[in-house]
Design a protein around this nucleic acid. Structure first.
Lengths: 133, 133
DNA sequence: CTATCTGTTATACTGCAAGTATAACAGATA
DNA sequence: TATCTGTTATACTTGCAGTATAACAGATAG
């Protein structure tokens, strides 16, 4: 699981880190129950401050993607995740993006297909990196 | 075209305004070539500073969604929009969201269908507000 | 018991974006 | 001339992002 941070990007570091971990979980590089590196370790590896990693972890915990224990550290949350309000959350995220697609004259089928294809792409990154068993 | 701004939200005002206008264009409430309110007028209507509106307009101009003229003001950009690099842009926006959907155990077809449905919903807001001609 | 790991919390500081406020300029128009 | 437009400049306040240092409580290995 390699974390790539763009220090020159416009997204906050903790937000980039959060995204990378969610993508890592989705790709299967981080499996449910699997332990994540400690905040100090990950901060040292990436070269950022502990609190920045802590902020990303706390955000992921609040969103339900990871669980944190004072003794055993952080770990990927077990399935199934609590999905109350998730579709509303998803709709809020997607609305401005769908609007952009409409402005660029993509119809619903094209947009849906693009989203599904990207879903499959994110889901199968592990196969590219680790080979097909 | 009603603009709704959440002053208590975590998104910057100029970013919310930008999203609202893009959604308005996508919904057909703002048609290509149609004039937008001046920065002073819109700022006064919403109750925010001129520079905040100006920042949103400048962002929309840089993204190609509107055109600005010193004499005639701002207007919705004519179709077709310049779509160079748009799919890469779209993929960057959608990747973390698709990852969230995967974590919540939505498969590619479900996710694609949800995105397509939301696309249609954004596209047909005008019909709800103005009736079907 | 000691040392070391874990997350958690507190404090303080720097840097920068966001937002506001005021002002002025150039160009178009009535 | 007066008034509209976008554009630019300056200055200020506020709050977030990120860093740095430190300490605490609990678990664990020696």
């Amino acid at each position: 699981m390699i974390i790539q941070i763009d220090f020159a990007g416009d997204l906050p570091l903790y937000s980039q880190l959060r995204d990378q971990i969610v993508i890592g979980i989705a790709a299967g590089l981080l499996k449910p129950g699997e332990a994540l590196p400690s905040v100090r370790r990950l901060a040292a590896d990436i070269g950022i401050n502990i609190h920045t990693v802590n902020k990303a972890y706390a955000l992921l915990r609040d969103e339900g993607y990871i669980v944190m224990d004072r003794r055993s550290g952080a770990a990927v949350a077990p399935r199934p995740l609590d999905s109350r309000g998730f579709f509303e959350h998803l709709a809020d995220l997607l609305r401005p993006i769908a609007a952009e697609a409409i402005c660029h004259e993509l119809d619903a089928e094209q947009f849906g297909r693009f989203c599904a294809d990207l879903h499959r792409q994110v889901r199968t990154v592990q196969d590219i990196r680790e080979g097909h068993p």
